[in-house]
């Protein structure tokens, strides 16, 4: 994973406590630059400014769902190429995967997730 050290990750999730700890872990484990966003409606603006290499996106958020954010990213020529990892706390994983696939996302990670597993997924996404 060392090849991608220093990569930029945009973390969009309304769970402020979770994003705070995940950011600390990612920064320490992978030496990533992590930007946290708890308000999904700001994703496009922040992504344009921050230029992430990968976006980790929660699926169910108040204000704007992950699938809607993802569609907006795909519609934007500057952002459409950025790989997106969906995070979900849903019990219905099949349903979540189908929902993700409907907006062209194939990487879905279920909460709670072990850090090494998430790091692997991030690295795979960065190599796409």
């Amino acid at each position: 994973m060392s090849a991608n050290h220093g990569s930029a990750i945009l973390l969009v999730d309304d769970e402020a406590g979770f994003t705070k700890l995940l950011k600390m872990n990612l920064e320490r484990a992978g030496n990533y630059r992590v930007e946290v966003l708890n308000d999904p409606t700001q994703t496009i603006a922040v992504a344009k400014a921050f230029r992430p290499d990968v976006i980790i996106l929660d699926m169910v958020m108040p204000g704007m769902n992950g699938t809607v954010v993802s569609t907006k990213l795909l519609e934007d020529p500057d952002l459409r190429e950025i790989p997106v990892i969906f995070l979900t706390a849903s019990m219905e994983e099949g349903e979540a995967c189908a929902e993700a696939a409907s907006v062209g996302i194939r990487t879905v990670v279920t909460k709670p997730v072990e850090l090494p597993v998430l790091l692997e997924v991030i690295e795979s996404a960065l190599q796409m």
Binding site: E15, G17, F18, L21, L22, M24, N25, R28, A29, V60, A89, S90, M91, E92, T110, K111, P112, V113, E114, L115
Partner: peptide, 23 residues
């Protein structure tokens, strides 16, 4: 299903905390 979702979020946070302390 909704309640499980509400529980899995804090669980995810706890796991991240544990990961941090494991270091």
């Amino acid at each position: 299903a909704g309640v499980a979702h509400e529980v899995k979020n804090p669980l995810a946070l706890i796991l991240m905390g544990v990961e941090y302390l494991t270091g």
